[in-house]
Design a protein around this nucleic acid. Structure first.
Lengths: 249, 249
DNA sequence: GAGTGGTCTAGACCACCCA
DNA sequence: GGGTGGTCTAGACCACTCC
């Protein structure tokens, strides 16, 4: 009936999970059992389970079995995480989320200085004849020890060069607080959200299954229509749900 | 060196594509060629290509070959797509996007009336003792004939029942214009964005490869803190990039 | 008819877990 | 040591495209 055998198996198991036949955390039938039940080869069962993992329903534990994944506490990005109030309260956005979500944040930072790629130059609206040097802040964010986000920020060297923005620790309130002190009051941000499969390297770092999609966010910070920072973020879609509020005007 | 053979192949080809060895639209080496080049089995090459497809870099054409996917025109959702100006101009949000993007929109609609699930009741903040009946508007959106978005809206029957919101055609300005006429001026919207692998059925409808992630958006429309509509949207992450603007306050 | 991508099978090997 | 998930191979069949 079905064109693809593994689709039928995945549909069956998904239905059973959603109907509550298997509770969260429960162990699913083993590969050998499923091979017998459906009369298919090992790889076909594997394909079905890969699909359910990519959907976020199932978690595999090597040497033990497949388990119905528990609903992880989702991390919400509220509107006011970018508010001036949070900055003056001395919190960066990630710390702000952590405080709201109740988990223990940790960040490792690496700072560098490079020539902007054409993509970055475009985001920062650097004129072709202007200096193309940018400060790069590379960050790995952890929640309760687990890697949940990779972020890479670029700031024009003409603004950030030689300031605390080139130190690993940007101090209370983070990058945005320092930018405002340097005479660049922030007016607004744009965030562009997209999704894609992780590169194998990203999947390893974020500790997500290979097919599991990641969210890609490009945030640009503006000071009166002048772009002062662009931040490329990659996060596990299992851990993050992004929330935005829009006025109806 | 690499643990997984297909990861190495995928990394190689990704590098070659990004370095520009293969232009957009160009044909990649065939399966037989890659099997010979890397000394691996057919399935291993297939796995590598599946990965590159999920990343959105490669497109397969059955019976012809693998091609570097062209950068599709991205559909941007600007802030003012939900603005009052667009509504009074007689445009729904999808029509608004179409006008901005320059493509030909088409929508098929199915309307129904059902009991709210617990998820929907929660979004609409329906009290347990209040009537749970909701009007469901099921929509398939096409851009230039291609399916790009599935949307399912729920409105409390106490608001939408017996009105034009239960017709397939909601008239100029769409659902939101009618809600305002019915005495529910819109104050703001919340959008919650997440990503996941499509269910096989969704992948077929949206015409995306199986591993290719989809964006999941839950939009709630509020009239002075009263939720009047919840809209569950599913869209191909290949076609959609979501843009939000946030004030720095 | 030859070549292509896509799917499935049978069998093998590995790393891991648990009794 | 036996069971588990994960990966790879060799070979087969199918649908499709192009000549």
């Amino acid at each position: 009936m079905q064109m693809k055998a593994w689709v039928e198996i995945a549909d069956d198991l998904r239905g059973e999970i959603q109907r509550g036949d298997y509770a969260a955390g429960a162990r699913l039938p083993s590969g050998t059992e499923l091979m017998a039940r459906y009369g298919v080869a090992r790889q076909t069962v594997q394909n079905a389970m890969d699909q359910l993992q990519a959907e976020g329903l199932v978690l595999s534990v090597a040497g033990r079995g497949w388990y119905v994944s528990k609903q992880k506490t989702i991390v919400r990005l509220a509107r006011n995480r970018l508010s001036k109030a949070e900055r003056t309260a001395g919190r960066g956005t990630f710390m702000s989320d952590a405080a709201a979500g109740g988990w223990k944040p940790a960040v490792t930072v690496k700072v560098d200085r490079v020539e902007a790629t054409s993509e970055i130059a475009e985001y920062l609206e650097l004129a072709p004849d202007a200096p193309q040097e940018v400060v790069v802040r590379d960050r790995i964010m952890r929640a309760d020890g687990e890697v949940v986000q990779l972020a890479r920020s670029y700031l024009p060297a003409s603004i950030a060069g030689g300031t605390q923005l080139e130190e690993t620790d940007t101090g209370p309130g983070g990058t945005y607080a320092r930018l405002e002190e340097l005479g660049y009051p922030l007016s607004h941000f744009t965030e562009m959200v997209s999704a894609r499969a992780p590169r194998p390297r990203e999947a390893d770092i974020l500790q997500v299954p290979y097919g599991f999609p990641i969210l890609n966010v490009v945030r640009i910070a503006y000071s009166n229509d002048l772009p002062v920072e662009v931040n490329l973020m990659v996060m596990s879609s299992e851990r993050y749900h992004l929330v935005y509020q829009i006025d109806a005007q």
